[in-house]
Design a binder for these strands. Structure first.
Lengths: 324, 324
DNA sequence: ATGAAAGCGCTAACAA
DNA sequence: TTGTTAGCGCTTTCAT
């Protein structure tokens, strides 16, 4: 494993010159450059990034933390982030927190320890104070609403999304509307819940506590939710569901039991994932990939000390299909 | 940003001792250890992983390359790998290749450059020679069949999977069986294709070239495949589909057009993804997460110079539902 | 149980 | 345009 010094020797130049060639610096005479390149070929030289990282004080790696990779929302988000990283020649370190604050802290250390140049919070349950403190160690961007004023945020207006769906359902005469969300402690969960119950009171809709479900993420969770809804003595006539996966699960199970959708139970999802087309789910289109791309691009900017807006809001859109 | 030297000074010990405390080495007197710990607290010391990585010659990071993160198969695989990484305190660098050999090479460099301690090939289109050469720079594990003898492989027996489905369909009297796969150049694609056509001839099944589809990955791709099948002058009576997503898409579209499944068109998928339950898809269960976990665990072993089997085969299982 | 000293391999400020 | 030199911050061998 030959190192830079050997290249320098063989090419009869200084290590600096070799380094310059490696980094495409100007001010290197073509002859020398060629000599270096030749030596590199001959000795089969391979640079060592750890040395470079240490010396430069950066790694060209950014991290992203999500509860779980294998969820369409997050893998979509990561795809967007990853695409953008490719553009900048950054690598992407992915960590699953499982919504466990301990695991989050563990990953945050990588930012403190200079292993990553920046961090994207896909979703995060840690306190604002934790994020605030962390932000003094490195650059952070959040993909959801956060109280922390030190972190640029790129997200969609979940309140507005909820408002669109509730208004839409109300306009169709629904008075008994249930709610099903994912993690109630994440930024997204908090916004949606708050928005829903605000409207719920404002419009004086009917309400029974067991019309509320949380921590539901998958198609299979949807099966269970559907079962619970259908065995309730007093059913909602419509459900606002924070995830297309869960919504699809509800539809599958509901139809299986012979209940008509939307006549007996209307469903509105969230995300406009491919599956929603399949089950003809009315849903809120959310530009997930764009959120990821934007987040990565913002992070890149702040790493390079450029100013960025502290809020970036992307548009939501109601997609009408046949489930409501 | 205080560094190790300052801790040493403040605690009145050598840097070596500080390092020992940091790394939980034995042979440190409790008093000294406490003094060091105290200094660390007081100075708010934060270690620098790049320095450590350079010094130790490893990073505790492994990489995984997949065509696309946002596909249930791969995000599931990554989840498994990620879970296992958490156990070993390894971090996971994820890269999307888009099945582009260029992009693969780019990522492979990280192994050469010592940025990652090992590499998992989720799916890869590079030549065996590339992988062979790469393996002299670092540890690699593949999650699919590969010609390279230098790389331990953990995978399922795709030939057997195909055999099970074809046998199952044939036993039901199907003679016109179509095939739909993903990337025909990946290890998985090659195996499945070969196995299918072998049986196809062996059983003297009927065949028309337009019963074959490749590069199909998503639900939406499934819509298109279905449309194409349904407008064919001579349709297959059954389809073997290499992905539950695509299979689900085919089912959605087919049903929409009022075609009966499985009576008019039988479908068998592959993966046993959650969606397959929803659409009642007959499919081959593939322990994706376990593949990921196994791969990560093997990689960990070979990084630590332990011997591992060069093939690890996981079991496949036909899950009968209502689509065939 | 502890410390001195020699790395790990590359970069960059400065001088020439 | 090039080289000298002093780092980057931590680990580890070896001697004590």
């Amino acid at each position: 494993m030959s190192k830079l010094t050997e290249i320098a020797k063989r090419a009869n130049v200084s290590r600096t010159t070799v380094s310059r060639v490696l980094n495409n610096h100007p001010y290197v005479k073509p002859e020398k450059r060629d000599a270096v390149l030749k030596a590199i070929k001959e000795l089969n030289y391979v640079p060592n990034l750890n040395a470079r990282n240490l010396s430069k004080g950066k790694t060209n790696v950014i991290g992203v933390i999500v509860p779980k990779i294998n969820h369409p929302f997050f893998s979509n988000l990561i795809e967007g982030i990853g695409n953008e990283c490719n553009k900048y020649n950054y690598s992407l370190l992915v960590h699953q927190s499982n919504n466990d604050p301990e695991k989050e802290l563990q990953f945050f250390d990588l930012l403190k320890y200079k292993m990553i140049d920046g961090l994207i919070l896909g979703s995060c349950v840690s306190d604002t104070s934790v994020i605030d403190e962390l932000s003094s160690y490195g650059k952070i961007v959040s993909c959801e609403y956060s109280e922390s004023s030190k972190v640029p945020k790129v997200f969609v207006n979940h309140e507005y999304g909820i408002q669109m769906t509730v208004d839409y359902l109300k306009a169709q005469g629904h008075q008994k509307i249930g709610l099903c969300i994912g993690n109630p402690r994440s930024g997204v969960g908090i916004s949606r819940k708050k928005a829903f119950f605000k409207l719920q009171r404002e419009y004086s809709l009917k309400w029974i506590d067991y019309w509320y479900f949380e921590k539901q993420y998958t198609i299979e969770d949807g099966f269970e939710v559907a079962k619970k809804i259908l065995e309730q003595p007093s059913r909602p006539t419509a459900m606002v569901v924070g995830s297309d996966q869960v919504a699809a699960g509800i539809i599958f199970e509901t139809k299986k039991q012979g209940i008509m959708i939307p006549e007996e139970l209307a469903i509105v999802g969230f995300d406009n994932q491919p599956i929603s087309k399949g089950v003809e789910l009315t849903t809120i289109n959310q530009p997930i990939k764009e959120i990821g791309e934007n987040a990565a691009s913002l992070l890149y900017s702040i790493i390079h000390n450029q100013d960025v807006p502290s809020f970036t809001t992307l548009e939501l859109q109601l997609i009408k299909r046949n489930s409501a």
